[in-house]
Design a protein around this nucleic acid. Structure first.
Lengths: 246, 246
DNA sequence: GCCCTTATGAATGTCAGACAATTAAAGGTC
DNA sequence: GACCTTTAATTGTCTGACATTCATAAGGGC
């Protein structure tokens, strides 16, 4: 049946088939939850072997466009692409992009805080007690002197995500997830002294206070100062790294 | 050799292998441009068949973590994850998220313009003649009355991406690419009247003027008004859609 | 009739082996 | 040295088989 596309043998068959199915999903010809034909049927439809179809399906699964289920009445189903799924993909891509050293600490830092500041007006307007409580709790945790650097960073991420979520826009949260989480590996390289922790906790407190008072300008200021301070910390690490060779 | 992980048979072998290789790449044990062992070698190393390895590799290829080359001295190579690659993945994920109707037009619109406004201060400070010229050119195109709605939307995207790129931060551009491009399918549903086009072109001109004058506040205002206007247009479409069934 | 156990069949997951297609490099010819 | 041919390595594809999973149907005990 192979329709023999005239001059498109540039890609693998599996890539072409993956693309065809992806288009069907994106264009709404297949709806969420719908079951794809079985691998054997797809193989026949596209005029290829089952292995080729399977490779195509694995490509789609890697983008979490479909999920597969074994057993009777199993098969491949169109995924809903939940926010969580989108988040994790977003984070994976962003982390990759940064970890491949194509991006300087300065650039990543600037992007992250610029985006975060964008949330400030919405967060100040919409913040609920729930998110405020999360931020306060993380600030308390960050004040414990026996906290490891990794745990401090993780808490930092949690706090900032609470701030972003307080803006009450899931698409914004999704976009920011990448920016905030992807910075963590870079932040993890920083050894936090007691003094720098104190400084950061102070700025976090200012941020939480601003949100509580629904003062967007104050939140903006706190984030500006946090960016500046993070930048100096990061620069120190980068400088000492390049001094000690690689 | 199968190390028989104690209690992790939750995933397919191909997914496990993909994850193992992905970790190796992310953690820097494999560097950009490096060649992976051949499929046959990987199959032996992991104690699985070649098909299983291939499925794992397809998963990684779908995330553009690797690229494959046929022939002698071919194989799978660790990809650099260029900005373009990251862009397109970002766009795919964002588009999917929006197109699956899990997101309202209002939410998407708010997120998009909130993020774009975040770029205003940087863009106003750093804008070069190049990006200004691109914006002016797109405004001129949008003023042509015989332009199709699709072309109008595409030009809109180009203009807004020029604005974002003017901020001079590639990470920011990458993050925004998703927000801006993913809106296009939603915008494409809008039929632009001559009046609405005029309104939009006027706001675009105000945005370009603000950038030229390096006036961040004016750019912010223009984007606010653009958001408000886009929202009314979108609401009209949604309303008429729900009236006419479906 | 009701519940528990046991087939059954359809589907994915995995394997093994084969061949085709591609490609860079080595070797040969002039 | 330039050009052509061979070669070997590697991915791409196909075929057929078996293992595994799992909802449903069938059967048996009470």
């Amino acid at each position: 049946m192979k329709t023999a596309s005239p001059a498109t043998p540039r890609q693998d068959l599996s890539a072409q088939i993956a693309e065809a199915i992806r288009d069907a999903i994106v264009e709404g010809r297949m709806i969420t939850g719908e079951r794809l034909p079985s691998e054997a049927e797809l193989a026949e439809q596209f005029g290829v072997s089952r292995s080729t179809v399977r490779e195509a399906l694995k490509r789609l699964a890697a983008q979490s466009l479909i999920r597969t289920q074994r057993g009777a009445f199993g098969g491949a189903f169109v995924n809903r692409l939940s926010y969580e799924g989108a988040y994790s993909q977003q984070i994976t891509t962003s982390t990759l992009l940064l970890s491949m050293n194509a991006v300087s600490f300065e650039t990543a830092c600037e992007a992250r805080y610029t985006l975060e500041r964008a949330c400030a007006p919405l967060a100040a307007r919409r913040r609920t007690d729930e998110y405020l409580a999360t931020m306060r709790a993380e600030i308390a945790r960050q004040s414990q002197p026996d906290l490891s650097d990794e745990a401090f960073c993780a808490s930092d991420v949690t706090l900032h995500r609470a701030f972003v979520d307080a803006a009450g826009n899931p698409v914004l949260s999704y976009q920011l997830a990448g920016a905030v989480e992807a910075m963590q590996p870079l932040m993890n390289m920083i050894t936090f002294t007691a003094r720098s922790r104190g400084e950061i906790v102070g700025l976090h407190t200012a941020l939480a206070d601003a949100l509580e008072a629904q003062d967007a300008a104050a939140a903006d200021t706190a984030l500006h100062r946090l960016e500046a301070y993070t930048l100096t910390l990061g620069r120190d690490v980068m400088a000492s790294r390049s001094r000690h060779g690689k």
